[in-house]
Design a protein around this nucleic acid. Structure first.
Lengths: 295, 295
DNA sequence: CTGAAAGCGCTTACAG
DNA sequence: CTGAAAGCGCTTACAG
């Protein structure tokens, strides 16, 4: 048939056999962090490579506001445009997860849900990662450890907060709520949050930051105060982007393995569609890369 | 109808009216630079926002090798899956452009073609940008100016090379082929290319680099030689990513406005589809951001 | 102007 | 096992 130049009309085929061979990718809205963050292209690369091998295409949602994410999902499902959906992030009481679960439509979350265990998801053990880092800083003699987290709506923030608190408690260090700051995944936000911490009576001797970009702002604020990193204040952050390697000082940062998160998410989803697998979750290893910003 | 919970089947509609309201996005293959580069997510953001406003969705190609790009295009078109196509980069004798033009299928290129003027495209004036930078460096007293470019297959490389040569010639500076190095858009490649330049008998007093990430490698090589930036060697690069702001020293870099490139590409394509517009091209302004890596 | 029929290009289930 | 018909869920062109 190929010799005759025949090529099947994919749309007609989809209509007939009720299979689109397309996965809907729900992007974080642009107001959101993930777009700037190198996490996103890496995860997309992982998703794309696995879907490609399995002859699935990607239909990307084009929403600019957070509210539009659910609308995109509904549009994709009701319009019968996709066989499954990948959510790139998860929130507390996530209405997208809620809707997808209720619809019994195949989906997978990069991240996890506080409300449901019986869904497909891939995630790091963010609680343990933050627990490990906090413990490490304590081991190195820090006792006034602050946390600059991302939005409190994000499940990842809740998990990290909980790992942070757990480590402090186990080491009999009082949790100081002034040391917990919530920000956005932007350099400016890191800067502002750090300035707040540095204006406290007891300034922290270590700061854990949710993302490398934010950490750059933190470094800036600390340098402005003429404090030394890591002598006066240690910094540890997340995502191990190229910024962590190139900043001054270089940043201790957690590699969350976005490529593997993306690949795993895609393959779990495909199995759930093609083989009707039960809900499955996977914990992807993280790795703490120690650099000059910690002792 | 909405009250009754009716929602049209988009697939069926597409089959009936031969319109998918979907744009195919041909991603650069992963081996390629653009994926790591912040250029890509920004351009995607621009594309996405315009398509979203016009009720178009994005079908992303999932190719991992360069050769697969053309296959993706053929699959999209023959399968009648998209109404138009956006190419994220352009090469010399680009077979994707060739095929699309021949098929008379609506498309737009982010970048330009050396072979065709009568296609839809958006691009910076890369020749002039490089011309401007080279002139600036000459004005500041540099005369041994090197160029670390990207792949020679890319049209952007050809254009920049030509702007570089033009500025040298106009200033009666001999073009030294040893000063022209071709690399990949990776830090390591910048490092290796710079080491080569620094091993020459007459080392350059200025280096123009195709991307900030590569420039980091260049900085590293120069520091290893205990040379000073910009006193001994000036550096200027492209893309004005966050790396340019945060590296030590900070980098003079060209902001190519990827957001606008993406938005313009999308709107030109939509006009070409919906209003059957003639081929149109747009030159997007660049801006040279001067920082500490140049005098 | 309205409504029923034909058609988009496939797949599937069924008659032979 | 093969081949023609019915059906996927819309839109479009046409008869009334």
């Amino acid at each position: 048939m190929n010799i005759l130049g025949y090529y099947p009309n994919v749309i007609a085929r989809s209509l007939a056999n009720r299979k689109t061979n397309t996965i809907g990718l729900i992007m974080p809205s642009f107001s959101d962090m993930l777009f700037i963050n190198p996490f996103f292209p890496e995860a997309l690369r992982g998703i794309s490579s696995v879907l490609s091998e399995n002859s699935y295409d990607i239909l990307m949602s084009t929403n600019s506001k957070h509210k539009e994410e659910l609308e995109s999902i509904q549009k994709f499902i009701r319009g019968k445009r996709v066989d499954g959906i990948i959510l790139m992030s998860s929130r507390v009481k996530d209405e997208c997860i809620e809707f997808l679960k209720q619809s019994k439509f195949p989906f997978v979350v990069i991240g996890s849900s506080l409300e449901y265990n019986d869904i497909n998801f891939v995630d790091n053990d963010n609680e343990k990662a933050t627990y490990d880092i906090t413990n490490y800083l304590i081991q190195k003699g820090c006792s006034n450890i602050a946390l600059i987290a991302g939005s409190i709506d994000l499940v990842v923030t809740i998990n990290r907060l909980s790992g942070y608190k757990k480590a402090l408690q186990e080491n009999d260090i009082q949790i100081n709520n002034e040391y917990i700051v919530v920000g956005e995944f932007l350099e400016e936000s890191g800067y502002i949050s750090a300035k707040r911490l540095l204006s406290l009576e007891n300034i922290p001797d270590a700061i854990i930051v949710a993302d490398d970009i934010m950490a750059l702002g933190v470094i800036k604020a600390i340098k402005e105060k003429n404090l030394k990193i890591p002598e006066d204040i240690s910094i540890a952050s997340f995502n191990n982007s190229i910024l962590a390697k190139t900043s001054t000082p270089t940043l201790t940062s957690v590699d969350v393995n976005p490529l593997k998160l993306g690949m795993s998410a895609a393959s779990i989803l495909i199995n759930s569609i093609d083989k009707n697998d039960k809900s499955k979750s996977l914990v992807v290893d993280y790795e703490i890369i120690f650099r000059d910003s910690t002792k």
